[in-house]
Simulated assay, not measured.
Amino acid sequence: MELEFILDMIESNGYLGLFLWLWIGVFVFPVPNEVIVMTIGLATSLKVLHPSIAFISVYLGILAAMTTSYILGRLIGRPLLQYFQKRNKFTKVIDNSMKLMDKYHALSLSISYFIPGIRNFLPFLYGFSKLKYRTFALFAYSGALLWLAIAFPLGYIFGEHIEIIIAYEQEIFMVVGVIAIFYVLFKIRKHRRNMKKEKLETKDTLS
Protein backbone atom coordinates (compact mmCIF):
# COMPACT_ATOMS: atom_id res chain seq x y z
CA MET A 1 0.00 0.00 0.00
CA GLU A 2 1.65 3.19 -1.19
CA LEU A 3 1.11 6.68 0.12
CA GLU A 4 0.75 7.93 -3.46
CA PHE A 5 -2.34 5.76 -3.89
CA ILE A 6 -4.03 7.40 -0.90
CA LEU A 7 -3.07 10.86 -2.07
CA ASP A 8 -4.55 10.18 -5.51
CA MET A 9 -7.72 8.77 -3.98
CA ILE A 10 -8.15 11.77 -1.67
CA GLU A 11 -7.60 14.15 -4.54
CA SER A 12 -10.21 12.33 -6.62
CA ASN A 13 -12.83 11.39 -4.00
CA GLY A 14 -12.05 13.33 -0.81
CA TYR A 15 -12.86 11.93 2.62
CA LEU A 16 -15.84 10.11 1.11
CA GLY A 17 -13.27 7.96 -0.70
CA LEU A 18 -11.74 6.94 2.65
CA PHE A 19 -15.14 5.98 3.98
CA LEU A 20 -16.04 3.91 0.91
CA TRP A 21 -12.60 2.30 0.85
CA LEU A 22 -12.88 1.09 4.46
CA TRP A 23 -16.49 0.02 3.89
CA ILE A 24 -16.45 -1.74 0.53
CA GLY A 25 -12.72 -2.29 0.14
CA VAL A 26 -12.63 -4.94 2.86
CA PHE A 27 -14.90 -7.13 0.71
CA VAL A 28 -13.03 -6.45 -2.54
CA PHE A 29 -9.34 -5.73 -1.93
CA PRO A 30 -7.24 -8.18 0.15
CA VAL A 31 -5.34 -5.39 1.92
CA PRO A 32 -4.97 -5.62 5.73
CA ASN A 33 -6.75 -2.83 7.60
CA GLU A 34 -3.56 -2.17 9.55
CA VAL A 35 -1.77 -1.17 6.37
CA ILE A 36 -4.64 1.04 5.23
CA VAL A 37 -5.16 2.81 8.56
CA MET A 38 -1.48 3.35 9.34
CA THR A 39 -0.88 4.68 5.83
CA ILE A 40 -3.73 7.12 6.38
CA GLY A 41 -2.17 8.04 9.72
CA LEU A 42 1.08 8.73 7.90
CA ALA A 43 -0.79 10.94 5.42
CA THR A 44 -2.21 13.00 8.29
CA SER A 45 1.28 13.47 9.75
CA LEU A 46 2.33 14.94 6.40
CA LYS A 47 -0.56 17.45 6.65
CA VAL A 48 -2.26 15.91 3.62
CA LEU A 49 -5.36 15.07 5.67
CA HIS A 50 -7.01 16.61 8.71
CA PRO A 51 -6.45 14.11 11.57
CA SER A 52 -9.92 14.36 13.13
CA ILE A 53 -11.84 14.20 9.86
CA ALA A 54 -9.69 11.33 8.58
CA PHE A 55 -10.14 9.41 11.85
CA ILE A 56 -13.92 9.83 11.79
CA SER A 57 -14.12 8.88 8.09
CA VAL A 58 -12.11 5.73 8.68
CA TYR A 59 -14.09 4.76 11.79
CA LEU A 60 -17.43 5.21 10.04
CA GLY A 61 -16.15 3.12 7.13
CA ILE A 62 -15.12 0.34 9.52
CA LEU A 63 -18.52 0.44 11.24
CA ALA A 64 -20.27 0.27 7.87
CA ALA A 65 -18.19 -2.79 6.88
CA MET A 66 -18.86 -4.60 10.17
CA THR A 67 -22.57 -3.80 10.05
CA THR A 68 -22.82 -4.95 6.43
CA SER A 69 -21.19 -8.25 7.36
CA TYR A 70 -23.59 -8.61 10.32
CA ILE A 71 -26.63 -7.89 8.12
CA LEU A 72 -25.47 -10.38 5.48
CA GLY A 73 -25.22 -12.97 8.23
CA ARG A 74 -28.77 -12.29 9.39
CA LEU A 75 -30.32 -12.23 5.93
CA ILE A 76 -28.45 -14.88 3.94
CA GLY A 77 -26.15 -16.44 6.53
CA ARG A 78 -26.88 -20.11 5.89
CA PRO A 79 -26.15 -20.28 2.12
CA LEU A 80 -23.11 -18.01 2.49
CA LEU A 81 -21.73 -20.06 5.38
CA GLN A 82 -22.19 -23.26 3.38
CA TYR A 83 -20.31 -21.62 0.51
CA PHE A 84 -17.44 -20.54 2.81
CA GLN A 85 -17.21 -23.98 4.41
CA LYS A 86 -16.59 -25.52 0.98
CA ARG A 87 -13.59 -23.22 0.41
CA ASN A 88 -10.36 -24.39 2.05
CA LYS A 89 -9.04 -20.84 2.52
CA PHE A 90 -11.97 -20.05 4.86
CA THR A 91 -11.85 -23.26 6.90
CA LYS A 92 -9.21 -22.09 9.38
CA VAL A 93 -10.84 -18.65 9.78
CA ILE A 94 -14.22 -20.26 10.51
CA ASP A 95 -12.71 -22.69 13.05
CA ASN A 96 -10.77 -19.95 14.85
CA SER A 97 -13.82 -17.68 14.86
CA MET A 98 -15.99 -20.43 16.36
CA LYS A 99 -13.42 -21.10 19.09
CA LEU A 100 -13.26 -17.40 19.95
CA MET A 101 -17.07 -17.20 20.09
CA ASP A 102 -17.31 -20.26 22.35
CA LYS A 103 -14.66 -18.94 24.72
CA TYR A 104 -15.57 -15.25 25.01
CA HIS A 105 -19.11 -15.04 23.63
CA ALA A 106 -20.12 -11.46 22.67
CA LEU A 107 -16.84 -10.09 24.06
CA SER A 108 -15.12 -11.92 21.20
CA LEU A 109 -16.40 -9.15 18.90
CA SER A 110 -14.21 -6.65 20.75
CA ILE A 111 -11.24 -9.01 20.85
CA SER A 112 -11.55 -10.09 17.21
CA TYR A 113 -10.67 -6.71 15.75
CA PHE A 114 -7.14 -7.26 17.01
CA ILE A 115 -6.93 -10.51 15.01
CA PRO A 116 -6.58 -10.17 11.21
CA GLY A 117 -9.03 -12.27 9.19
CA ILE A 118 -11.30 -13.06 12.10
CA ARG A 119 -12.22 -9.39 12.54
CA ASN A 120 -13.98 -9.39 9.17
CA PHE A 121 -15.70 -12.74 9.55
CA LEU A 122 -16.98 -12.73 13.12
CA PRO A 123 -19.71 -10.08 12.56
CA PHE A 124 -21.10 -12.33 9.82
CA LEU A 125 -21.24 -15.32 12.19
CA TYR A 126 -22.93 -13.29 14.90
CA GLY A 127 -25.46 -12.04 12.37
CA PHE A 128 -26.11 -15.65 11.38
CA SER A 129 -26.54 -16.60 15.06
CA LYS A 130 -29.17 -13.82 15.39
CA LEU A 131 -27.30 -11.91 18.10
CA LYS A 132 -29.26 -8.78 18.97
CA TYR A 133 -28.02 -5.75 17.08
CA ARG A 134 -27.73 -3.74 20.30
CA THR A 135 -25.33 -6.29 21.77
CA PHE A 136 -23.44 -6.61 18.50
CA ALA A 137 -22.99 -2.84 18.21
CA LEU A 138 -21.87 -2.45 21.83
CA PHE A 139 -19.02 -4.95 21.59
CA ALA A 140 -18.10 -4.67 17.90
CA TYR A 141 -18.08 -0.88 17.64
CA SER A 142 -16.20 -0.36 20.91
CA GLY A 143 -13.57 -2.93 19.92
CA ALA A 144 -13.09 -1.29 16.53
CA LEU A 145 -12.77 2.13 18.16
CA LEU A 146 -10.11 0.87 20.57
CA TRP A 147 -8.20 -0.80 17.72
CA LEU A 148 -8.38 2.35 15.58
CA ALA A 149 -7.25 4.49 18.53
CA ILE A 150 -4.09 2.37 18.55
CA ALA A 151 -3.47 1.85 14.81
CA PHE A 152 -4.11 5.44 13.69
CA PRO A 153 -1.54 7.07 16.05
CA LEU A 154 0.98 4.33 15.22
CA GLY A 155 0.72 5.34 11.57
CA TYR A 156 0.88 9.02 12.47
CA ILE A 157 4.03 8.61 14.56
CA PHE A 158 5.78 5.62 13.00
CA GLY A 159 4.22 5.53 9.53
CA GLU A 160 7.56 5.27 7.77
CA HIS A 161 8.17 1.95 9.53
CA ILE A 162 4.85 0.28 8.68
CA GLU A 163 6.58 -2.91 7.50
CA ILE A 164 8.19 -3.43 10.91
CA ILE A 165 4.94 -2.77 12.75
CA ILE A 166 3.05 -5.22 10.53
CA ALA A 167 5.72 -7.87 11.17
CA TYR A 168 5.01 -7.67 14.92
CA GLU A 169 1.44 -6.51 14.52
CA GLN A 170 -0.37 -9.04 16.70
CA GLU A 171 2.07 -8.70 19.60
CA ILE A 172 1.97 -4.89 19.51
CA PHE A 173 -1.80 -4.61 19.23
CA MET A 174 -2.49 -7.25 21.87
CA VAL A 175 -0.12 -5.67 24.41
CA VAL A 176 -1.47 -2.15 23.86
CA GLY A 177 -5.03 -3.48 23.76
CA VAL A 178 -4.65 -5.34 27.06
CA ILE A 179 -3.14 -2.25 28.70
CA ALA A 180 -6.03 -0.12 27.42
CA ILE A 181 -8.63 -2.64 28.65
CA PHE A 182 -7.07 -2.82 32.12
CA TYR A 183 -6.96 0.99 32.24
CA VAL A 184 -10.67 1.22 31.37
CA LEU A 185 -11.56 -1.46 33.94
CA PHE A 186 -9.47 0.38 36.56
CA LYS A 187 -11.31 3.64 35.85
CA ILE A 188 -14.71 1.92 36.02
CA ARG A 189 -13.82 0.24 39.30
CA LYS A 190 -12.53 3.50 40.73
CA HIS A 191 -15.71 5.30 39.65
CA ARG A 192 -17.92 2.65 41.27
CA ARG A 193 -15.86 2.80 44.45
CA ASN A 194 -16.26 6.58 44.61
CA MET A 195 -20.00 6.28 43.97
CA LYS A 196 -20.31 3.74 46.76
CA LYS A 197 -18.32 5.98 49.09
CA GLU A 198 -20.53 8.98 48.28
CA LYS A 199 -23.67 6.94 48.98
CA LEU A 200 -22.30 5.83 52.36
CA GLU A 201 -21.37 9.41 53.24
CA THR A 202 -24.82 10.63 52.22
CA LYS A 203 -26.46 7.89 54.27
CA ASP A 204 -24.37 8.78 57.34
CA THR A 205 -25.26 12.47 56.93
CA LEU A 206 -28.99 11.74 56.71
CA SER A 207 -28.86 9.47 59.73
Results as ranks from 00 to 15, higher is better:
82 Q>H: 13
157 I>F: 07
43 A>E: 04
91 T>W: 06
178 V>F: 15
194 N>D: 08
1 M>P: 00
201 E>K: 12
145 L>G: 02
104 Y>M: 06
89 K>I: 15
35 V>H: 07
86 K>S: 06
186 F>C: 15
117 G>V: 00
24 I>C: 04
167 A>I: 03
54 A>K: 04
160 E>D: 14
141 Y>Q: 14
88 N>E: 11
148 L>C: 13
192 R>M: 15
148 L>R: 11
20 L>Y: 15
75 L>K: 09
172 I>N: 02
173 F>R: 00
19 F>I: 04
2 E>K: 09
41 G>I: 01
17 G>F: 14
20 L>W: 12
138 L>D: 11
179 I>V: 15
57 S>R: 06
1 M>N: 08
174 M>Q: 13
37 V>M: 08
78 R>Y: 10
95 D>P: 02
180 A>I: 13
136 F>H: 00
202 T>H: 15
5 F>D: 15
139 F>P: 02
98 M>Q: 10
54 A>C: 06
111 I>P: 07
111 I>F: 06
93 V>R: 10
69 S>C: 04
35 V>N: 10
94 I>H: 03
82 Q>A: 05
16 L>S: 06
184 V>F: 10
189 R>F: 08
184 V>A: 13
71 I>F: 05
45 S>C: 03
50 H>C: 07
157 I>C: 10
135 T>R: 13
69 S>L: 06
81 L>H: 03
202 T>Y: 07
137 A>R: 06
189 R>G: 15
154 L>G: 00
7 L>G: 12
15 Y>A: 07
19 F>K: 04
124 F>P: 00
70 Y>E: 02
175 V>Y: 11
21 W>M: 10
190 K>V: 01
2 E>P: 07
165 I>D: 00
179 I>S: 12
194 N>I: 12
185 L>N: 14
142 S>W: 02
114 F>V: 03
82 Q>N: 09
41 G>M: 08
183 Y>H: 15
31 V>D: 08
115 I>R: 00
93 V>L: 10
